[in-house]
């Protein structure tokens, strides 16, 4: 028999990630074998490993299953209206430039309803970390066709199969100007964690797509089994191709998911460009926003 030297064994012990979670809200609402919880665990672990000051981290979510992440993490967060996570995060970052602003939301929220905000945030290279949890469908509202649903996959609004060409998200982000683009599945827990940790240490628009199983709608409507079957599918077919051309990483129905870090380049961010521009034009008359914000009160 193994005997632990930890004095608290035997009593009800709490999970090591508990300091980062609002435990009074756990267990969460996500379905059995949904992958969103795994992505939250990877994000929490990456935060712990990176050693950032948790008072200087904020999480912004939109609407949907993944939109509930901001409510479960014990960090400053905001659960915004549908599709408006990136606009809120933009204001937060510009108002308090010292913060590490993370947007964690779903595919329907970020590239469906909020698609316009997504491409413009990438174009401006805003200093945001965007983690998009992609389950290929609108999960919370009943399985409607999403902008990421692969060709031929069934959804509740496309019972004979989807005929719309879906977005290739890494390519969308990279061609809009994101400075860090990666894609992993829920099975690649270590690589997803390392990737989030690496992105935390970088600047600019950082985009990480995390493919997650949706057992209740996507898998059920397409007869793909449980979330565990989706994990087995990732295990058998997912391919890691770092530095791949993002034009070639689109996902078709039950095709191998190409994972990896596709783009990693340093570019001046929106705030850098704004400071340079106004310093040149206005000289001493330009007072940049202090890192902790609050300039308006002092003047």
């Amino acid at each position: 028999m193994t005997v632990s030297t930890n004095p608290t064994v035997g009593q009800e012990m709490e999970h090591p990630s508990a300091p980062l979670l609002r435990m009074e809200r756990i267990p969460h609402v996500w379905c059995p074998s949904c992958g969103i919880g795994t992505v939250v665990k990877c994000y929490a672990t990456a935060l712990e490993r990176s050693g950032v000051d948790l008072d200087k981290v904020s999480v912004v979510s939109g609407i949907g299953c993944s939109g509930r992440v901001a409510g479960y993490l014990k960090l400053d967060g905001f659960h915004t209206t549908h599709g408006r996570a990136i606009p809120f995060a933009t204001g937060l970052k510009l108002g308090r430039p010292e913060l590490l602003v993370t947007v964690i939301s779903g595919d329907g929220d970020l590239v469906g309803i909020g698609g316009n905000h997504f491409i413009h945030a990438a174009r401006r290279n805003l200093d945001l970390l965007v983690i998009l949890i992609n389950n290929f469908i609108y999960g919370m509202t009943g399985g409607q066709n999403a902008p990421t649903t692969p060709l031929g996959a069934k959804s509740s609004t496309m019972p004979f199969g989807n005929f719309e060409t879906p977005f290739n998200l890494p390519h969308l982000a990279a061609s809009s100007g994101a400075s860090y683009v990666a894609r992993w599945t829920c099975l690649h827990i270590r690589r997803l964690t390392w990737s989030i940790e690496e992105a935390i240490g970088k600047r600019g628009f950082r985009f990480i797509e995390a493919v997650a199983p949706c057992p209740t709608l996507y898998a059920r409507l397409n007869k793909l089994g449980s979330g565990l079957d989706a994990m087995r599918f990732y295990h058998d077919t997912a391919e890691i191709r770092n530095g791949a051309d993002t034009r070639e990483v689109d996902v078709s129905f039950q095709s191998p998911i190409i994972c990896g870090k596709f783009v990693d380049e340093e570019r001046p961010t929106f705030l850098d460009l704004m400071h340079d521009h106004y310093s040149n034009r206005l000289g001493d008359g330009y007072v940049p926003m202090p890192p902790e914000g609050g300039m308006l009160h002092e003047r």
Partner: peptide, 9 residues
């Protein structure tokens, strides 16, 4: 690995 992959904490 079990700790990382568990979606339920």
């Amino acid at each position: 690995l079990c700790e990382m992959i568990c979606p339920e904490f």
